[in-house]
Design a protein around this nucleic acid. Structure first.
Lengths: 142, 142
DNA sequence: GGGCAAACCGACCAAAATAGTCAACATTGA
DNA sequence: TCAATGTTGACTATTTTGGTCGGTTTGCCC
């Protein structure tokens, strides 16, 4: 029950873009170096984020990527769902009749509670919130 | 980011034992049949639950398994953590310095919030709660 | 006290998901 | 034009998952 690297790297990359907000398009290589993610792999992930409309790209020399919207309007939930798929911990919640038992089992109630809780948390955190966390952490560290 | 079958089967099995509380030890085969889980595999899982002290076994003919404590004192969280390991979505929260960045990154804050949220949910649900959910579901179905 | 039903144990295995790599091509700014 | 960058898709090694199988031990019941 671990988050895959896709989700983790994705959040790191998006946070990186938020940090370098006003500085023009950021090339993959720059993001990859700063966040310590394999460049070729990050490329894959960012392509998905672009198709989902979370980042925009600028092609050609001096090109790169930028957030498609202000950091305060992009949530962790949007990023994670884009890269990890629906955050349901079990298929029972998604597929039509994944459990042939007609899904009246009380286990389903448990999975549903988890699903709701997780989504509520990740949708409640924006990239801007993370920037503010960062400020706090830095201030604390001194 | 899915729960593995270990956790799901485990919850099903434990719920099954809760349902057959006063009826003496339940053999693996009976549980496996009722819950539609491969018998040989369930054996593995239940061995772990036994070692964790969540169920007790009776050996020999007419033997089987029982809950080690009343259903109201066993939480979904205990079962899931036993079979799935710690419910941290990322190693960053567990290992000493898993991220060489000294873990001051705001991503960690996100993972921590998820970790706390998930644990709070699963530790708040006992097998007894599930039995009651079952009652409600059955009553509703009619 | 012997047979049988069950728990118990450990090795083994196949398929799927994960985490990447790599090569080739497209686009565009300088 | 050329160099930097984005874009795409195919390929691969490793790990995790989801089991199976064979055998041993235990103890109730007849």
């Amino acid at each position: 029950m671990k988050l895959s690297t896709r989700g983790r790297y994705g959040i790191h990359a998006m946070f990186d873009l938020a940090q370098h907000g006003g500085e023009g398009p950021q090339p993959i290589k720059a993001i990859a170096d700063r966040q310590d993610v394999p460049e070729a792999y990050l490329e894959q992930l960012i392509a998905v984020l672009r198709k989902a409309g979370l980042v925009t790209s600028v092609r050609g020399a001096q090109g790169g990527y930028q957030l498609a919207r202000p950091a305060g309007e992009i949530t962790v939930g949007q990023v994670l769902r884009t890269l990890e798929g629906d955050l349901a911990l079990t298929d029972c919640l998604l597929e039509e009749d994944a459990c042939h038992r007609a899904c009246k089992c009380p286990s389903r109630v448990v999975w549903q509670k988890l699903y709701d809780g997780i989504n509520q948390i990740v949708d409640g955190i924006t990239l801007k919130d993370m920037l503010e966390d960062q400020e706090r952490l830095l201030a604390q560290g001194e």
